[in-house]
Design a protein around this nucleic acid. Structure first.
Lengths: 253, 253
DNA sequence: CAGCCTAACTGGTCAAGACGAGATGTCCTG
DNA sequence: CAGGACATCTCGTCTTGACCAGTTAGGCTG
């Protein structure tokens, strides 16, 4: 029941009560919550109020609603850990992109689709690639699927001057991937930098990644530098936060 | 106006239209949107429908509502970049914790509050610290403020066997911080590992960090290892995703 | 007995209306 | 002219009522 005199809005009281019941285990992961109309009875409030309460839990990501079936406690999803060793030369030499290596380890059927296009660098891209805004860049737009489900979006951008007359401008870059082609052209990768953030996905990202309401996206911008310190490539990735965790290790100095 | 025959729910049409107008610059960051009652007129739908639409944008984090004032386009917040060099020994020797070093660089007034407690390791903590579940750990619970605003929560846990009879069990650990005390006790830090994820904040975190609706939290778990590979400390941090970006650099191998 | 079909669930959307509470400018009063 | 009271904006909450749209299980039909 709801305390009308407490000053706390009714829908928040209901949300808090349901949240407590879930964390106490009264409703276990995968369980169906009572229907909205049942909750109307038990709490003595109207249906929109119940819906407001459930929406709070949905945006918190702890329940999902399925039309016609009910509202379910979201089971903790298995986290895939991405380590920076995915970019080691050893892994590259095995002719595996980072994603294919993950697939081999994770035991799922990988598939990727690539689109190539060319564009003029905007301010952010130009600054990260140390070129001038408006300079031409080669863009490789990748969609990665695991067992048919999209699990990762990645957009790779390279100054066109490094990719002309290479298979980097083709869908299939050949054995070893784009980094191997760069190396053949005299641009071996020397260092990496990654910038990690998180935000709510755009509607397009949410539908592409099939994100449930209340699931944030992790954004990773990776910059690959040559031995002379010149940026060779930036790679913008968007990952579902409920499926990925990034790991980094380093030696203390 | 709203197209009733399109099959797209009215509140989503309104949300999409407002989102487009915002990204097109019709409403600039900081601008007030038309009031809900005005939107009722322009779109020809009821107020609950308008509110649903606005709520979509709120959970997407692109507008905030202020009671009595209006709905405002959220200005892009300035991102503070946390680099791993914040943990270099040089920085530690300057008697600066990571947070104080950031403050010096960012030019804001820092303040922190610390609570010490002891608890028994749960499964996750035990596994990360390579001890047995139930073993006693020293917990340092920190709250960091910048100009009075809470900007970071951090919980540090160390096996009690490493902290007994040290100032690590005091609020003030002394010059150089906890890592310096560990080193004096023969446990120099050799390597770090960080695990980065993101999720929606709990209600407690949201109010502590004063997160606007629709702002995710970045979670960082840092493990510090001694030269013998033994875990010495784990540090769980929660950061507002709209204020922080993490950066990592490494040499390709 | 197999398969379809429908009834009775479920959540999704929307309306119209009411009142509460914070913010703010204006106008009146001292 | 300064300051406070109030009118009137804003969003916040909640109700009643209705219909639409997936889902599912049970019963009917062939």
């Amino acid at each position: 029941m709801v305390d009308r005199r407490s000053g706390v809005p009714a829908f928040r009281q209901v949300a808090a009560d349901l949240r407590d019941k879930i964390s106490a285990g009264d409703y276990a992961p995968g369980d169906r919550l009572p229907s909205e109309r049942e909750l109307v009875e038990t709490y003595g409030v109207s249906r929109p109020t119940i819906r407001d309460a459930v929406n709070v839990l949905r945006t918190e990501g702890i329940v999902t609603a399925e039309h016609g079936r009910g509202v379910f406690v979201r089971p903790p999803s298995s986290i895939r850990r991405l380590s920076r060793s995915r970019l080691s030369k050893a892994a590259r030499d095995r002719n595996q992109g980072a994603f294919l290596a993950d697939a081999a380890a994770g035991g799922f059927m990988p598939s990727t689709s690539v689109k190539i296009r060319f564009e003029q660098a905007d301010e952010r891209v130009a600054s990260l690639l140390a070129i001038s805004a408006g300079d031409e860049v080669t863009v490789r737009d990748r969609l990665m699927r695991a067992d048919g489900l999209v699990v990762q979006l990645a957009v790779s951008r390279l100054p066109r001057k490094f990719t002309r007359d290479t298979t980097i401008e083709q869908v299939d870059t050949g054995k070893g991937g784009a980094y191997a082609r760069l190396e053949e052209a005299g641009h071996a990768i020397a260092t990496f930098a990654e910038y990690v953030g998180a935000r709510m996905p755009t509607p397009e990202e949410a539908s592409a990644l099939q994100l449930a309401e209340g699931t944030p996206a992790i954004t990773v911008t990776r910059v690959a530098y040559g031995s002379d310190g010149i940026p060779l490539e930036i790679n913008d990735m968007v990952l579902p936060a409920d499926k990925y965790e990034l790991s980094y290790e380093w030696v203390a100095d």
